[in-house]
């Protein structure tokens, strides 16, 4: 399943499944998007499924950004994304509070 995204300034909106099959594409999109200055915001409201491979891409991007004093925030998250972040306890790292 190809990756679908839209960019609006610092914001990146992803839609569709994020899994092992398109995690590499996700990494590229994130890297490319991080080339612009400032923090990165990612909207995952329209992501019906996300697995640990896609999560690894997000974590990798966050680590890169942190090295230059920036960060990656998830602005909105669908229920499956919240589930994954809750399971791995990474919600706060991405700026999401009060998962569940």
């Amino acid at each position: 399943m190809p990756l679908t995204y839209t960019r609006t300034g610092p914001g990146l909106t992803l839609s569709g499944r994020l899994d092992a099959q398109n995690a590499r594409d996700l990494r590229e999109v994130l890297t490319e998007h991080a080339a612009q200055p400032g923090d990165l915001t990612v909207n995952l409201a329209d992501v019906p499924f996300i697995d640990s491979s896609a999560l690894a891409a997000l974590v990798s991007a966050l680590k890169d950004l942190r090295r230059s004093g920036r960060t990656l925030r998830i602005t909105q998250a669908s229920a499956p994304v919240r589930e994954l972040l809750s399971l791995t306890m990474l919600g706060r790292v991405f700026g999401l509070e009060d998962l569940r």
């Binding site: 697995d51 640990s52 491979s53 999560l55 690894a56 974590v59 990798s60 966050l62 680590k63 994954l84 399971l87 791995t88 306890m89 990474l90 790292v93």
Partner: peptide
């Protein structure tokens, strides 16, 4: 462990917790 900022090992953590 959960909450750690790393790129691997989340998969099996997820399975363990479910």
């Amino acid at each position: 462990t959960a909450g750690e900022l790393r790129e691997h090992g989340y998969g099996l953590l997820i399975v363990q917790r479910c």
